[in-house]
Write a protein that binds this DNA or RNA. Structure first.
Lengths: 126, 126
DNA sequence: CGGAAGCGTAACCCATAAGTTACGGGTTTG
DNA sequence: CAAACCCGTAACTTATGGGTTACGCTTCCG
C-alpha cells in the first residue's frame, strides 16, 4: 500500500519528452550534467531542473566527480508503475469471466448440493 | 518509428492520478460517465474532460447507449509505452557493448571492403 | 591566487492544465 | 410535449510546469 505516490512521481517524471530522452541517454551510459545538456537545444538550467525531477523520482542517481556531477540511470522505481500497468492489461477481461465463473459455480453448488467442484481448469484460453 | 507521439499522449494521460483511478475503475467493468463522476469529489465536467483526454489517447473507447455514454478500457495503446519501459530496464548495460560492436563492424567493413563481418564477439567486455 | 569551467538555484515570464459554473443538445418518461 | 435526466462544451479562473536570464558556489588550472 502507499505505492500510489511513488507511481505518481515516476509517472510524472516520465510524462515529459525531454526527461524521457534523458533517460534513454542514461540507459546507454552515465553522463555528466553538461554532457546531457549539450545534446539539447534548451538551456542548461532547464536540463538541470529536469534532472532534479528525475532525481527526486529516484529514476536517476547522481555522484559528484570533481567539478562535474555524473548521472546514472536507476530503473528500480519503475517497478510500481510497471506493476500497475501490468495489472491494467492482464486482469481486464479475465476478472469478469472469473466473476461470472464463480457466480456460476456458486449457483450450481446451491442447486445440486454435494457435487465436487472439479473440471474447471482450461476454459477458453484464447 | 513515430511511436514517440503515441508514447507521449499515453504517458501524459497516465500522469494524472484522477485519470489513473478512472482507468483502474474501467479495468473491472465498463462504466457510464456519470457512474464514474459519482465516485469522485470533483465536478462532473472535470471528469468529462479527463475522459476526453483518455479517449484521445486511445486508452478508452466510448459507446452511446440511450442517453448515457459507456466507457470501456482499451489497454492496447499502452504497448508502445510498456515497450519503451522494458527497453529502459533490460538493455541498460548491454546495449553499450552492442553499439561498440556495431561501430566496430562498420569500421571494419569500410576498411576492408567486401569482407563478411564475422569474428567480432568478445571485445573488451569490461 | 585569480580566472575559467561546471552546476545548481532563484526570480521571473508565459503556456498549459485542471478546476469551477453556466449552458445546450439529445433521450427518456409521465 | 413538457419536464427530468445524462453528458459534453464553452467561458473563465487559478495553479502548475517548463523555459529563460542572472547569480553564487565549488573545483580545476595557469
Amino acid at each position: 500500500m502507499g505505492y500510489a505516490s511513488d507511481v505518481d512521481e515516476v509517472a510524472t517524471a516520465i510524462a515529459d519528452p525531454v526527461r524521457r530522452h534523458i533517460l534513454t541517454l542514461l540507459r546507454d551510459e552515465p553522463l555528466a550534467a553538461g554532457d546531457i545538456a549539450r545534446r539539447f537545444t534548451i538551456s542548461r538550467p532547464a536540463i538541470s531542473r529536469h534532472l532534479r525531477v528525475l532525481r527526486e523520482s529516484g529514476l536517476v542517481r547522481d555522484e559528484l566527480v570533481g567539478r562535474q556531477r555524473i548521472y546514472r540511470l536507476d530503473p528500480g522505481p519503475l517497478s510500481p508503475l510497471v506493476d500497475w500497468l501490468a495489472g491494467l492489461v492482464t486482469t481486464e477481461r479475465w476478472e469478469r469471466h472469473l466473476d461470472a465463473l464463480e457466480t456460476e459455480v456458486y449457483r450450481t453448488r446451491r442447486e445440486r448440493r454435494s457435487s465436487g467442484p472439479a473440471e474447471h481448469r482450461r476454459e477458453h484460453t484464447a
